[in-house]
């Protein structure tokens, strides 16, 4: 039961239509599958393959290149602690050790109750706010041990409704109203753009 629900299938078709070639929609559709399931299960890969017109092996080939796509269900909250150079200089090592202790798991692990996965990750573009971390790709800047404990406790208590469960990225989606759309530009149609005139 991890094929797209109707609403997502409609959305998937809408996304595909935005691109000149369906295959370009592969990563967006994998995000959609991960949003629906929390990870990308095998039958979702097969469905994405059908939708964009490639083999499921090709989908796996692409998916496996990208760190964010999970093939097994991670914790409800994916805690990523940055260990890039700026965070490293500002105490990321200590923060990571503290996180491992607090959650009782090593980097790469998931708590037995399925609530938290922990990982040390490369630079997340918050270098002036070191040490930084993300929970389900939502930032926490200038993190301290105490701040980390509060965050984890609040998540465990269900008090952080601003952080959606793993799989859901942006909660605002692009909508292109059909009457406003200029339309995808096919690489196979060679036309001088009208505003260039004879150009």
């Amino acid at each position: 039961m991890s094929r797209f629900i109707d609403e997502n299938l409609r959305l998937a078709r809408e996304i595909i239509a935005r691109y000149p070639k369906p295959r370009s929609a592969m990563i967006p559709l994998l995000h959609l599958a991960q949003e629906q399931n929390g990870y990308v299960p095998q039958d979702a890969m097969e469905e994405v393959a059908e939708l964009v017109g490639v083999s499921s092996a090709e989908v796996l080939g692409t998916l496996s290149f990208y760190e964010m796509f999970k093939q097994i269900q991670p914790g409800r909250y994916q805690v990523n602690i940055c260990h890039g150079i700026s965070c490293f200089l500002c105490g990321a090592g200590e923060l990571l050790s503290h996180a491992e202790e607090k959650l009782g798991i090593k980097s790469g692990g998931t708590t037995p109750d399925g609530m938290f996965s922990l990982e040390a990750v490369e630079c997340i573009a918050a270098c002036t706010e070191a040490p930084a971390l993300q929970v389900n790709y939502r930032y926490s800047h200038r993190s301290t041990s105490e701040g980390f404990d509060e965050l984890v406790d609040a998540l465990a208590a269900g008090d952080r409704t601003d952080i959606p469960e793993h799989g859901i990225l942006a909660t605002v989606r692009q909508r292109i109203p059909s009457e406003r759309a200029a339309g995808a530009s096919s690489p196979d149609v060679s036309e001088v753009p009208v505003w260039l005139g004879e150009g």
Binding site: F65, I176, P177
Partner: peptide, 27 residues
């Protein structure tokens, strides 16, 4: 898009272009 700055006939001219938001996935 709603305000006519993107898409078909931008600001009432014959200039038209779609901007498609695309997310990466970690690499």
């Amino acid at each position: 898009y709603e305000a006519g700055y993107i898409g078909k006939n931008i600001c009432g001219t014959d200039f038209s272009v779609d901007i498609v938001l695309h997310w990466g996935a970690g690499a």
